[in-house]
Design a protein around this nucleic acid. Structure first.
Lengths: 196, 196
DNA sequence: CATAGAGTGGACCGGACGGTCAAGAAAGGT
DNA sequence: ACCTTTCTTGACCGTCCGGTCCACTCTATG
């Protein structure tokens, strides 16, 4: 029951924050939507910022699940990247169905907001982004070994390129309220890999 | 004097908002920093949202100046894009000096935030992004004519690619508090142009 | 110089906000 | 059965917020 309440608070907060921003969602909003009282919220979280961090963490957990699934090695490394992009696009499209407007990247959007909330929040955010990048970097390394991309490129730098591009596409998708912008992702990321 | 006050309010608001978000800056903050009283602010702007729109407009004006200068046709089209990227990177680095933390793209960041402020705000934002994209698209068209990029690519789609990538790099630069991420911009955008 | 209207000062408002608290209800170990 | 710890409740607080109001002061114009 206890863990359940905490989880419900975070999940509800996540839904409210996604598509908007942490600042635009009040603790009252969260409590109302979760059917919980302020005291409970502040029993589990020392501050609103802490709740924000938990939301970010939950987003990362969900993204991790998608990453693990997409990057399973039953297909080649480049196909894994493609598969992840499909999942990512589907995720945004589904969110648009549910909320009526296209959200940005659940991690990137919060990352930009939390970066201004002090140095430790920023450090946390960058650790998560690094973990995400590693999935790309590993696949790229493997693709280099297979001769599917230019072996001279730096895997880490290429991974950063891919992540940046994906973040940019998600941001434009949000601004244009059009998840179809992500349809270009596969081809775009291929260009950034200098394939042979 | 009148225009002067209005301009000062917007300029100050811009400085406060840049690097954070509109939501995190209060009208009191703006008034204090501008040495102005609430009555004056609400004499010029009917609401805080209107002030936000004016800030966005100012950012676009400043960006336009950079664009016009960078895209002057005294050099080839691809060199213009490079020149713009230099200016953009310099802009972010300068802002970091001034505020102590790396801001995101002055247009992209606000665009993402304002997109959730109703349909008309979003439409305004997309018009500005389209205008920005046009600078890229025109240069790409010219580069195609000169045979500097693959003539088969669609200029508009390529321009979207470039803008998305730039936005993504700016977002990561903000999250990592490291403007050097933009150093890769030139090479990255080249890859996205499928040069011959 | 009279007057109108733009611009400014600054007090004020209602409500929303993040956060607290004390007391009670469950849960859980012994 | 008992007590301790973990939750939950719901009223409450001080502050900050966006926004209003009205009296005042400039300044441009006729």
């Amino acid at each position: 029951m206890a863990r359940d309440t905490r989880d419900r608070i975070v999940a509800v907060a996540r839904d409210l924050v996604h598509g908007t921003s942490l600042a635009q969602v009040s603790t009252d909003d969260v409590c109302r939507a979760a059917g919980v009282h302020k005291g409970s919220l502040y029993h589990f979280f020392p501050s609103k910022d802490a709740l924000g961090a938990a939301v970010f963490e939950l987003n990362w957990t969900m993204m991790s699940a998608v990453l693990v699934q997409a990057f399973a090695d039953d297909v080649g490394p480049l196909a894994r990247i493609d598969r992840f992009l499909d999942s990512f696009a589907a995720m945004l499209a589904m969110m648009r169905e549910k909320t009526g407007s296209t959200p940005g990247c659940p991690l990137g959007g919060l990352a930009a907001e939390l970066a201004a909330h002090g140095e430790d929040a920023r450090a946390h955010v960058t650790r998560v982004l690094d973990a995400w990048k590693r999935y790309f970097a590993d696949a790229i390394s493997e693709a280099k070994g297979r001769g599917e991309v230019d072996p001279k490129i730096d895997s880490g730098a290429a991974a950063t390129r891919l992540l940046a591009h994906l973040q940019g596409l998600a941001l434009l998708a949000q601004a244009y309220d059009d998840p179809r912008l992500l349809l270009h992702a596969k081809a775009d990321l291929r260009m950034l890999l200098a394939p042979k």
